[in-house]
Computed example of a mutant assay.
Amino acid sequence: MTSSISIHPLLDKGVSKSTADFSGGVLICACTERPVKIRVEGAIAHNHACGCTKCWKPEGAVFSMVAVAPHDKVSVLENGDKLAVVDPSALIQRHACTECGVHMYGPVERDHPFQGLDFIHPERFQESGWQEPGFAAFVSSVIEAGVEPEMMDGVRQRLNDLGLPPYDCLSPGLMDYIASWTAQRNVKPNN
């Protein structure tokens, strides 16, 4: 029975729809004392369930929930002294709370199609109505995190049942964007 396969605590109950008037909010870590707070101005984009082993996941989650926001629309409001970059060599510079471990934001700062975007975990918003996830990415990577390979057909079916088409990369639209960006970089000027 695929409904018994857990994906993410919020997604297992069904995907909540966004509201048209969501204009940003405050992300908060899991600390009860001096929580880190991050303001995100405006809407988020490309929200998805992610199976990679780098993203923060809440307890009991097989997938994380990840979206992006423009870097200039993300700012630390409170307790930024508790933040540290998880892996300085990674493309996404994930800033996590050193006490509770929640990844609060992750800018892409080097030359890349996603440069200028910050990756966030929208379930950390205090506000509701943010863009719902639209697909699942890096699905096979959950095997690296401990999901048994023979469970993968059920995992993919559960994602489809939730309306989250499963991909072992990003969604086709995002992959087309990356390929177009790369192709433009590789065009040699005529002499």
Score class of each variant (00 low, 15 high):
A49I: 13
T53G: 14
E41N: 08
C29K: 01
A45Y: 09
R39M: 12
T53C: 13
G42L: 02
I44R: 01
K17L: 11
G24A: 05
S23Q: 05
V40R: 00
E41V: 10
G25L: 03
A20L: 09
C52A: 14
K17Q: 06
C29L: 04
I38V: 15
K17S: 12
S23N: 11
A20D: 10
S16L: 13
C55V: 08
C55E: 11
C50Q: 11
V40Y: 01
D21G: 00
T32H: 08
R34C: 06
F22S: 01
S16T: 12
F22N: 02
I38W: 01
C52P: 09
T19K: 13
G25Y: 01
S16C: 10
V40D: 00
C55G: 12
H48Q: 14
V40G: 00
I38S: 03
N47H: 13
K37F: 01
R39T: 12
V40K: 00
R34P: 03
C50A: 12
K37D: 07
R34E: 14
S18R: 08
A45R: 06
G24V: 07
P35G: 03
C31I: 01
G24K: 03
V26C: 04
V40E: 00
A49H: 13
L27E: 00
A49E: 14
A43E: 01
S16D: 13
K17V: 10
A49K: 12
N47G: 11
V40W: 00
A43D: 08
N47S: 14
A45I: 03
R39L: 15
V15L: 09
N47L: 13
S23L: 06
V36M: 04
G25A: 02
I28N: 05
T53R: 14
S16R: 12
K17Y: 03
L27C: 02
C31Q: 07
N47W: 10
A20Q: 03
V40F: 02
I44Y: 02
T32E: 11
F22T: 07
C31K: 04
E41Y: 04
T19R: 14
R39C: 15
P35C: 10
A30V: 03
T32Q: 10
A45L: 04
I28C: 12
G51D: 08
I28M: 14
R39Q: 14
L27W: 01
R34W: 06
N47P: 07
V15M: 09
G24R: 06
P35T: 06
A49S: 08
C55M: 10
L27Y: 00
P35N: 08
I38A: 07
C29Y: 09
S23E: 05
C29P: 00
R39I: 13
N47T: 14
C50P: 13
E33A: 15
V26N: 05
A45H: 08
A43H: 04
V26I: 13
V15I: 14
R39W: 10
K17R: 08
A43P: 03
C31E: 06
R39Y: 09
F22M: 02
C31R: 08
V15D: 09
T53W: 08
V40C: 00
I38N: 03
C52L: 12
A45T: 03
V15Q: 07
K37Y: 02
K37C: 06
T19A: 10
D21Q: 02
V26M: 05
A30M: 05
S16E: 15
E41D: 10
T19I: 13
C50G: 12
V40Q: 00
